[in-house]
């Protein structure tokens, strides 16, 4: 199959998977306990790497931007710069990329292993839909937890930025916090939450699709895992561009 046909075929399959997941929510069984389990694995399990990523990203933003701001005499706006950059862009994208790496690969590998060891066939033969039992809870858990993780990353990013600004450059904490508060409005926060919802959907759908279509034994599991992470990461970055444009239009602003 040539790459264009392959791409169209995969888009079609992912669209069908999305529709099956939506359909599975309309009737029983719904597997709420499985959703909670996945939220724990995805959300709580990822919190440490997300907080570290947020903290050091905020820190490095100040580290790079402060000397320039100081040159123009605008160092009091350092908090604003970190806040808008983190909440609008880096927070959602970096969190999504970290989750794609950690969770997307895990989902794909787990489902792929179940496919090659015939556990998925066994599940179907026992009268259970793997989409309903395995894919839906994972995608729903990602859609719920990714915005929460993003907010956590944003908060720790602001803390990291504040710490670096205060400790390395001697910026007063209250000046930094005032700058953060004046720099962020409700549109920023809403945009920063809408983006990770879409990113969670993208990561979940791609990881489940790659896992459930695994073929070729253990080599195939490795292949689908790599493919899931690469594909999810690229799609998150591409989606971020289009989402930013949509949100700009929606909130009537040139920011995002």
């Amino acid at each position: 199959m040539n790459p264009i046909k392959q791409f169209i075929f995969e888009v079609e399959q992912i669209s069908v998977l999305f529709w099956q997941i939506v359909s599975s929510l309309r009737n029983r069984p719904r597997y709420f306990s499985e959703i909670i389990t996945q939220m724990d694995r995805i959300g709580v399990g990822s919190i440490s790497i997300i907080l570290l990523t947020g903290f050091f990203t905020g820190g490095v933003l100040i580290l790079q931007a402060y000397p320039t701001l100081q040159y123009y005499g605008a160092q009091s706006q350092a908090g604003r710069g970190v806040a808008t950059t983190l909440i609008r862009e880096l927070g959602p994208v970096l969190t999504a990329l970290m989750v794609a790496g950690r969770v997307g690969s895990a989902i794909s590998a787990e489902l792929g292993s179940m496919v090659v060891s015939q556990q998925i066939d066994a599940m179907r033969s026992l009268g259970t839909s793997p989409i309903r039992k395995l894919a839906s809870p994972r995608v729903i858990a990602l859609v719920i937890t990714l915005p929460l993780l993003t907010v956590a990353a944003d908060i720790f990013g602001l803390l990291g930025g504040g710490l670096v600004a205060n400790q390395l450059y001697g910026l007063d904490s209250s000046t930094y916090m005032t700058s953060v508060r004046t720099g962020v409005d409700i549109d920023d926060v809403l945009g920063g939450i809408i983006k990770p919802i879409i990113f969670g959907l993208i990561i979940g759908l791609i990881a489940c699709h790659k896992g459930l279509t695994t073929s070729g034994g253990t080599v195939g599991v490795g292949r689908s895992t790599t493919s899931a992470v690469v594909s999810a990461s690229i799609n998150v970055i591409i989606a971020d561009f289009f989402l930013s444009r949509v949100l700009q239009t929606l909130f009537d602003t040139t920011l995002f």
Binding site: S117, Q118, Q119, D121, A122, R124, G127, T128
Partner: peptide, 19 residues
């Protein structure tokens, strides 16, 4: 098919137990 499969038991080559 989910309803039909309730009438059928399936024994897989390697057992296919849920790990």
């Amino acid at each position: 098919m989910m309803l039909v499969r309730k009438k059928i038991g399936m024994v897989f080559q390697e057992g296919a137990l849920f790990d």
